[in-house]
Design a protein around this nucleic acid. Structure first.
Length: 573
RNA sequence: GCGCUCGUAGCUCAAUGGAUAGAGUACUGGCCUCCGAAGCCAGGGGUUGUGGGUUCGAUCCCCGCCGAGCGCGCCA
């Protein structure tokens, strides 16, 4: 039986609407599950919505709608309440049928087709491969990974992509840092620039180069004596000389540090349960001429101009605050230029929707990227940018430093090892992305035992434990007579299970995986409550089977939800 | 100064424009001879920063103000 109460009620209301207000059949039929049991199993505000267009009192409209509702064996009562809500009470069988539905659909329960297989790309993390990921990246990883899984579950054809910034100055600085450490490692004395990367991982990479190639890349440090007007200029000059001195060797070191950092980053994310389908190289955009092509297209369309020796994109024509440089006076393209090419490339790959997940500090970028797409004749509405607010890390009352350059920050690895991957992901996802997050390490560590994730996992493990105790074959539960589930807690649980697919659709539409975390916590709470109030393994075989079926359905929903969140569903803990 | 995001219980956070704003945590008091007490039950806790506006109805939408974070580079 594939009967679904919500869809059924919507049909009944649609029929009544056709009869009562034929001119307004397009009115959206909304059905919600009331918070209060006194308001029935479903409520519709249809009469309230019609009040204005019909110029009639909501309660009068509700009365007429109610009179025109086709009779249904699944509905036992219809009431008008409050300002004009129509409240429905369902027959018990209509409520408990969800249990068999969950058992039959298994890991696909909750999966929907709203995405209609539309090609969708989620690009996230995309951190510069210049050092270990920190807790801020962790939030982006948790959010992006779960959002991608959520959209996949909702029927979109999702590609998970990481944009590798392997073409920029930051990579040059890392390569330089590695080489300077290498020279130190070989006994040379030099002033390691304060603006270079200080972290120990740079030293590790330098030792690898040493071990593999000995003194092959040694050059006299006298050539590196640079008069420092300012730190940035000093670095640029050092990079220039390093390239000159090393020749091909520079490319080797550059590639080496890139490979090392990417491998480290990928392993880190995989251990966090976050997988990417595509690692897209920024450099490839230059190598294949895509950047030049994109800029040429903007030029041809008349959106570029020269000023102060640089080439500018007139982004103010598309709502940006100021025009933006795409090519510097030294001939180098800006990061923005490759980003234009990248987004153009994304659309050319046939994605109907591209979702960028950025740190909140990049919000000023949205207008210029969308502007560039519009200027290129693309539909900028196909790009959605989801901003993730910052994570500030605290050790008790003390704020932890988060400087990548200085190498002083808490890494995602540290966080995972201290708090655990499951707890980390759940903690990240327990708030919506636009909310700033204070992550107190002391708190996360000391409270890891009553972290909400254990609450949900515990409910899952409990069901497993009961099944083990029972010892029967869960497959036989498909024949259980679920109409025996008549208790208020049992019916509440059934309603909770039935709401899972509805929640999935809403969460997907709003890019809000945190809604899953909250829903699972509520599901677990109702199960714990039920478990304490009633015994599942009762003597009566029929009732026992019905309760076991309900428990297995709860376990299934918990497992399906946790899977989307990237959190494990342990059988014991 | 301008722009983006945010402001909800002591603390951390929820709530497609809907009915009496909800959880967790902390605090107080109960529940294991009974399927896992990482659990359950009960209790107090709020002028949703503030002042207006829109309407049948606003935590949500609009405007002002206060406060916090971020951005405003030929860096990424």
């Amino acid at each position: 039986m594939s009967f679904e109460p919500k869809a059924h009620l919507a049909e009944l209301l649609q029929a009544a609407l056709r009869s009562v207000a034929p001119d307004h059949v397009g009115t959206e039929i909304l059905l919600e599950r009331p918070k209060l049991a006194a308001h029935g199993d479903f409520a519709s505000n249809l009469a309230l919505q019609l009040a204005r267009p019909l110029r009639e009192r909501p309660r009068d409209i509700a009365t007429r709608l109610m009179r025109e509702l086709p009779p249904s064996p699944w509905v036992v009562a219809v009431e008008i309440a409050g300002a004009g809500f129509i409240n429905f009470r369902l027959a018990a069988a209509a409520k408990t049928a969800v249990v068999q539905r969950v058992l039959a659909q298994g890991q696909d329960y909750g999966r929907s087709r709203v995405g209609a297989g539309r090609k969708t790309q989620v690009e996230f993390v995309s951190a510069n491969p210049t050092g270990p990921l920190h807790v801020g990246h962790g939030r982006g990883a948790a959010y992006g990974g779960s959002l991608a899984a959520l959209l996949d579950f909702a029927g979109y054809a999702v590609t998970r992509e990481y944009y590798v910034n392997d073409a920029g100055r930051q990579m040059d600085i890392l390569a330089l840092s590695c080489w300077l450490r290498y020279l130190e490692e070989l006994g040379q004395t030099l002033d390691f620039p304060a603006a270079a990367y200080q972290g120990d991982y740079v030293l590790d990479m330098a030792r690898q180069v040493h071990a593999a190639h000995g003194a092959r890349y040694v050059h006299p440090v006298e050539a590196l004596a640079v008069a420092a007007s300012d730190p940035d200029a000093q670095l640029d000059e050092l990079i220039r000389r390093a390239k000159e001195l090393l020749g091909e060797g520079w490319h080797y070191i550059h590639q080496h540090v890139l490979n090392e950092q990417l491998a480290d980053c990928r392993a880190d994310l995989e251990e966090f349960g976050v997988h990417f389908d595509v690692w897209f190289s920024e450099r490839s955009l230059y190598d294949t001429g895509m950047v030049a092509l994109a800029i040429a297209r903007l030029e041809a369309a008349g959106h570029l101009y020269e000023q102060d020796g640089a080439r500018w994109f007139r982004s103010t024509a598309f709502g940006d605050e100021k025009d933006r440089v795409v090519q510097r006076d030294n001939g180098m393209h800006t990061y923005f230029a490759s980003d234009i090419a990248y987004h153009l490339n994304k659309l050319e790959r046939g994605f109907e929707k591209i979702i960028d997940i950025w740190g909140a500090d990049h919000h000023g970028y949205i207008a210029r990227v969308k502007g560039a797409l519009t200027a290129l004749g693309c539909d900028a509405a196909r790009l959605d940018v989801a901003l993730v607010q910052f994570v500030s890390l605290w050790r008790g009352a003390e704020r932890a430093s988060m400087s990548t350059r200085a190498g002083e920050y808490v890494t995602l690895r540290q966080l995972r090892s201290e708090v655990g991957a499951d707890a980390c992901r759940f903690f990240y996802l327990l708030r919506k992305p636009e909310q700033a997050l204070d992550f107190d390490l002391e708190l996360a560590k000391s409270q890891s035992n009553d972290n909400p994730v254990y609450y949900v996992q515990y409910a899952h493990a409990r069901v497993c434990s009961v099944l083990q105790q029972w010892g029967g074959d869960p497959a036989t539960l498909a024949e259980a007579d679920c109409s025996l589930l008549a208790g208020s807690r049992e019916l509440a649980l059934c309603a909770r299970l039935a709401a899972f697919p509805e929640m999935i659709d809403e969460a997907a539409a709003e890019y809000a995986p945190h809604a899953i975390a909250f829903h699972l916590r509520e599901t677990a709470a109702e199960f714990h409550s039920y478990y304490n109030a009633e015994r599942i393994l009762v003597d009566d075989p029929a009732l026992r089977a019905a309760r076991l079926a309900l428990a297995v359905a709860v376990r299934r929903v918990l497992r399906n939800g946790l899977t989307i969140l990237g959190v494990s569903a342990p059988e014991s803990m």
